[in-house]
Amino acid sequence: MKQGKYGEAVPVVIGGMVLDIQATSSIPPHPRTTCPGQVHYVQGGVARNIAECMGKLGTGPFFISVSGFDMAGTLLLEYWKSAKLPTEEGIRRHQDIKTPTVCHILDVTGEVAAGVASVEAVEKFLTPEWIQQFKHMIRSAPILMVDANLSRPALEASCRLAAESNIPVWFEPVSIAKSKRIAPIVEYITFASPNEDELIAMANALSSENLFCPIEKNKCSTDTLFQMLKPAIWLLLQKGVKVLVLTIGSEGVILCTKGEPNSWRIGLEKSHRHGFSQQLFETMTSSSPSNWCTDSKVLERSPNFLAVHFPALSASVVRLTGAGDCLVGGMLASLSAGLDVMQSVAIGIAAAKASVEVDSNVPSQFSLETITGDAKIVYSAAKVMQHQSKL
């Protein structure tokens, strides 16, 4: 059985490795013409970003993906090697593979205004047969993360391998369209991390008909947004998702569970720490601020449904494209290091803040002092969201 650098089993991440071409306009873009701005080539792909973030937080996963021998593939793999990221053994390379590439048009605020994705190679070449070669890695992992770029057969094969050894599975929706791929695998999913629009799409895919409408969230408070989204959240929890990590942009994250005994303390049974991840664990557990997160009496008042709001941190925004992936990467690294889900959300938000303040999707490095300091601020400010008993 193959194991990690330090002899222990490591998390497994499966999904897209993409070259992002990011064009940022310096004025509001107009249709049918060019506008001044800057163009950057950035290492991207949801799963790749998450794996890189985890590696830089001291929990390098085993990464399973595909890449071609073309210019885009060469750029991605050269960076992977230079950054001393996890082993390349799980990355399938073939002359027929056209490396997944995405072109984003970003507006003056750093938000995606439009984009074109050419990522068919993930579905075509990241096959169940390729994934099956690494079944021992998956079965021994503390957690498996799959992104929705995978084909349905590949998603099902990955989740079944994890289920055989009771390995928790994290589903990252990627986009509104691809988020619907949760439908055939929802019974295997422990964690899911949608934004509001992906949540609605997932809920509709899991219901017999389109019961949920997109949310109009202009000038909407976090409490009001939560009340509107609650039926969709509850549906996912009823269908089997144990922990829903709902991202709400600049307002932060709403963490939702069914409120079963100790669900708010969810951590991973297998955890391994060394280097940065050991320091992360020690710092967060030795001096976590005291608040409701450690008050079981408060949490046990919501036995059927628990929702907790974690605020975002103020940031000097450069680019927003890596924030969601670093949130997930930060959470996965923290969970794998032995932190509970509450502490992990706080670390994830701190990692997301660091990502939006740089040009790349993932910062070149993380500061332990900054990450843990920011995480403690988030943790202290987290609040249980009020809701009616009827869902």
Rank of each mutant, 00 (worst) to 15 (best):
K2P: 15
Y6D: 13
G7R: 07
V10H: 08
P11R: 01
P28A: 08
P31L: 14
C35H: 10
G37D: 07
Y41S: 09
V46N: 11
I50H: 09
I50Y: 09
E52L: 00
K56M: 10
F62H: 05
G68A: 13
Y79E: 12
S82C: 05
R92Y: 15
V102C: 15
H104V: 10
L106K: 06
V112G: 09
A113W: 00
A121V: 10
F125P: 11
E129R: 04
F134R: 09
F134H: 12
F134N: 11
K135R: 15
A141D: 12
A148G: 13
S151W: 00
E156A: 12
R160L: 12
E172C: 06
S175Y: 03
I176W: 01
K180H: 01
I182H: 02
V186S: 04
A192M: 07
P194N: 09
N195F: 09
E196C: 03
L199R: 01
M202G: 02
A205R: 05
A205V: 05
E209N: 06
N210T: 04
C213I: 08
I215T: 12
D223L: 12
F226S: 06
Q227L: 15
K230N: 14
L236A: 08
E251L: 11
V253E: 07
I254S: 07
I254T: 10
L255C: 07
I266P: 00
S271M: 08
H272V: 06
R273I: 14
H274R: 14
F276L: 05
L280M: 12
E282W: 02
F305W: 05
L306T: 01
V308H: 06
P311V: 02
G324I: 03
D325Q: 03
M331L: 13
M342N: 11
M342I: 14
G348T: 11
I349T: 07
I349C: 03
V362S: 06
T370N: 12
T370E: 14
A381K: 10
